[in-house]
């Protein structure tokens, strides 16, 4: 997701489109990316550490984006 404070023009366009469809109570729309993958490891902790490194180095650009890691063990 783009960090708070970085204008999300995609989110703004989606938000402006919603009232036309009758949903007039939606605000703060942000558009981000969702990546899913399988990963092998010995513990949830070590996998989380690896995935966070993957996000820091490659999957996210931390100049403009934040990230959240969810693991289904």
């Amino acid at each position: 997701m783009l960090k708070p404070g970085i204008s999300d023009v995609q989110g703004q366009v989606v938000e402006r489109s919603l009232p036309a469809l009758g949903w007039e109570n939606v605000s703060g729309v942000r558009v981000g990316k969702h990546l899913e993958f399988e990963i092998e490891g010995s513990s949830v902790e070590s996998i989380r550490e690896q995935v966070e490194q993957m996000c820091e180095r490659f999957l996210a650009n931390t100049v403009i984006e934040g990230f959240r890691v969810d693991i289904d063990a």
């Binding site: 783009l2 970085i6 204008s7 023009v9 995609q10 366009v13 650009n61 100049v63």
Partner: peptide
């Protein structure tokens, strides 16, 4: 160059899409 951190900053989608 920005992604490689050889220059500072990042480029996001144009205002107005």
């Amino acid at each position: 160059l920005a992604e490689a951190h050889l220059v500072p900053g990042a480029l996001i989608k144009n205002e107005g899409l």
